[in-house]
Nucleic acid binder design. Structure first.
Lengths: 199, 199
DNA sequence: TTCATTTTGTACATATATGGACAAAACCAG
DNA sequence: CTGGTTTTGTCCATATATGTACAAAATGAA
């Protein structure tokens, strides 16, 4: 039907994701990414539209692989707390195993772009607020499940949990030991009364 | 003795600090900052040496005004926990009052530069780890003071507290209400058993 | 009023970066 | 093998960005 593309689009998005994760949004310019992908800027614009558009595609690609993806998949009738604990444990492991200690791409992007990029700033702010809202929903379920006391303040705990997530991911850029990260995560979870070993 | 400078150096550093805080390190290029300060790049290099050097000067200028500066000034014989609580409350207030919701300049810089900037990355990582060590020291004092139980795990709590600090500052870029931020901070502090109203 | 000092302004060479315009190329269906 | 479609490659004009080099300017001290 038409001239074939030199590149595999999904693969390119995935490579862009890795680049943005490593170097941030500003450093992965259209010129730089085009050269990295082995295409011209002309093809870049044709395939992805803009740097912002490719960033959003890369974000989706990242989100699917990110440890906190499990939050989106929890069924309302399964135990919540063990999954949250496992998620934190997973974060500690993957952040420590990352040789370049890149932390979380979304948290990095939020720090870089919120307040300075007109389109992506608000987009990322929304993302985080929705993540917090999702946590609050899950904690509410956990209260109904009897996993948490009935008088638990789900709103406050969800926000504190979200802050812990952001903090743990940021901290992982400076603190590279999985054991130390897990000490951090465990203390946060236990403090909030949300720690639960998996069976 | 010599030709006078067009600018006040301290003032320039302070203005650079504001610019970096707003736009990040990459966006405050030598060219951009020179123009903002009304000097030539030639003068910039002469006065500050390099972008990295000006960044470090700006960081010092920022640190002196930052809410967590109180941590450096605590005497070992005064109550620790109320000061930590006040610090968190102050963070919530100043982050919410900042019309541009820039969060914490150091946390932003850590997210932007750790892992990608050869000199400033490790510099910022050190900064955060030393902040965590300072917190651990203060919690140790608090145990000796009797403010905390003798069996308190100062190391774990200090790390969790540091993560909360990082997370709260990052969250403040998306969550702009002082009340909501304070709910977050209070839940974190109470969870860690570190909440203490001031007298 | 000369001299030493430091800052300033201009120039240079080079690299990065943007986004659109337009022709040529490569494919497939009919 | 022709025609429709989409991608590619090249060109354009312009802006940003770096770091150094060197002469000119502005000061205070001797």
């Amino acid at each position: 039907m038409a001239r074939p593309s030199k590149i595999d689009k999904d693969l390119a998005v995935s490579e862009a994701m890795q680049a943005i994760w490593s170097d941030g949004y500003a450093a992965t310019s259209v010129k730089a990414m085009s050269e990295r992908l082995g295409i011209t800027r002309s093809s870049y614009y044709n395939a992805f539209g803009s740097q912002e558009a490719l960033f959003k595609a890369a974000l989706t690609s990242y989100a699917a692989l990110s440890p906190d993806h499990v939050l989106a998949e929890i069924d309302d009738d399964e135990p919540i707390l063990p999954l949250i604990t496992v998620m934190f444990k997973t974060i500690c492991r993957v952040r420590a195993e990352d040789r370049h200690h890149r932390g979380c791409m979304i948290v990095n992007a939020l720090a870089e772009l919120a307040g300075s990029h007109d389109e992506l700033g608000p987009f990322l702010e929304d993302w985080i607020l929705q993540s917090a809202a999702r946590l609050e929903h899950l904690l509410t379920i956990a209260i109904q499940n009897g996993e948490l006391p009935a008088d638990t303040d789900a709103h406050a705990k969800a926000l504190a949990l979200q802050a812990s997530l952001l903090g743990l991911n940021t901290l992982s850029k400076a603190l590279h030991s999985e054991a130390e990260l897990w000490i951090t995560a465990k203390a946060s979870l236990k403090g909030l009364g949300l720690f639960a070993e998996a069976n």
